[in-house]
Structure formats: C-alpha cells, structure tokens
Design a protein around this nucleic acid. Structure first.
Lengths: 114, 114
DNA sequence: CAGACACTTAAGTAAGTACTTGACTATAGT
DNA sequence: ACTATAGTCAAGTACTTACTTAAGTGTCTG
C-alpha cells in the first residue's frame, strides 16, 4: 500500500522525461540494448545508462546482461499501475459528471412543466 | 506537437507527487478551495498554493477566484493526454505480444504435425 | 594476445523541486 | 473601523535531477 505510493511517484517521475518516454516507445516494439536505446538520443551513453536505471528502479523495464550487451525489455505491471491510477480518477469524475447531468436534466424537466 | 511533449513532461511530473495526486483525487469528487485541498496535507498553505500552481501550469486543474477563495476544479484534457500516451504504448506492446503469440502458436502447430 | 566494443563507475556541476518563514493584500463578518 | 479569513509574494534552504567527462571492467573478434 505504502510501497504502491512510492512506485507511482517513481513511475510518473520516470515518464516525466521525453528521453525516457522515447526509450519506452522503442521498447514497446521489442527488447533493445542500451546502445540501441541511445541511438536516437543526443547524449552520452553514460547518461542513457542512468535513464535505464531510473526506468528499472520503478519497475517499468527489466534488464539482463547477455554477453557484453545489456538487453532491456518493458515490464507491464508498473506502467499499468500508473495507467490504472489515472483511469480510476477519470472514472470518478465521469460518474460525478453523469450525476450532475442527471440533476440538470431533472431541473430542466421540472421547469418544462412547472 | 512540440507543445504536447512539453505538456506530457509537465503532466507526468505533476502526477509524480503524492500530495498533488491527493489533491487531484479530492478534485475528482468536485471543485474545492485551496484550503480544502490543504486540509489533509501536512504542509503550509503557501506550499499547497505552489502545488496548485504546478497542477494549473500543466493544465490538469483550472482555478478561479471567487471572493477571497480560489476555487479549483479538474480539467480533463491534460490528464487524459497522459492516460492516452500510456494506453497507446500498451496497445503497442499488446499487439506485439499478440503477434508473438501467433508465431508461437504457428510453431506449435507445425511441431504437432511435422 | 591485442584491440575494439559495450557498457560501468565515479565525481563534478548547473538547474530544478519542495518545501519553509515572514510580510503583505484583498475580502467578509460584527 | 476592526479583525479574522484566505490567499499571495519573495527569499532562502536542503535535496534531487540530468547531465558531463574521464577512467575503468568485462566480453568478443581476428
């Protein structure tokens, strides 16, 4: 429960960076090495490694060393938790707006035949 | 287009904080003043105002001054954009996994009757 | 074995975040 | 008019982030 809060913090934080989102987008196409992730980004490899560490720390990606390359792949759970949080909120305000709509309809109906 | 990237940065950044998520959760129940948002949070009013400013800067909430209170309400577009980004990624990796599933099924079928 | 390759680690830096306190400014009620 | 309320503004501070460069460490390839 408390852990989930921490993970949401870290997951949203991880997604709050264009470079990391680019990496995630690449990884949705399939696993990739660190240098493959680095390829479209204008920064040092060391910086990319640090971004990978951020993504790994929040559980959005998992990595595994194969020979001299580190293969990265996306891990569904963490990112899904973030999606779920937003979806739950949206559901909240949508049902509220539905109820508001009902009330407005009722008022309108009552005004039509007073 | 470029703006959208900036907005996603800011929106995810905004959601990467427990206090701000608490505020958003409160606001999904309906509009609230700054002090109402502050009530469950262990920090100064000034700090809460700053959080509200962050949420407003990324478009997740809109505010309006009514008398001496500032009323805040949630604004769907920005937060929906964030949700959409995740949903699009998930759709990406799900279709990829589906294709992988197809390939595996095909392999399995071929192995059954070689 | 030599050299290239793919990271890895460490240390440093500039900018950004999340607060704080304290002084101030408009309302609103009595 | 007097005072409480609800917020606003400006500094200041401790901490974190997103990089950088430079010097390693294992892992192939010829």
């Amino acid at each position: 429960m408390l852990d989930q809060t921490i993970d949401l913090d870290r997951t949203f934080q991880a997604l709050a960076d264009k470079s990391r989102r680019t990496m995630v987008e690449r990884l949705t196409l399939g696993p990739a090495s660190v240098s493959e992730l680095a390829e479209p980004l204008a920064m040092s490899l060391a910086a990319v490694v640090q971004h990978v560490q951020v993504l790994e720390a929040c559980g959005v990606v998992k990595t595994e060393k194969v020979g001299m390359t580190r293969m990265c792949r996306i891990e569904r759970a963490a990112i899904t938790a973030a999606e779920q949080w937003i979806t739950d909120r949206r559901r909240g305000w949508e049902t509220r707006l539905d109820r508001l709509g009902d009330v407005l309809n009722e008022v309108a109906t009552n005004e039509e035949k007073p």
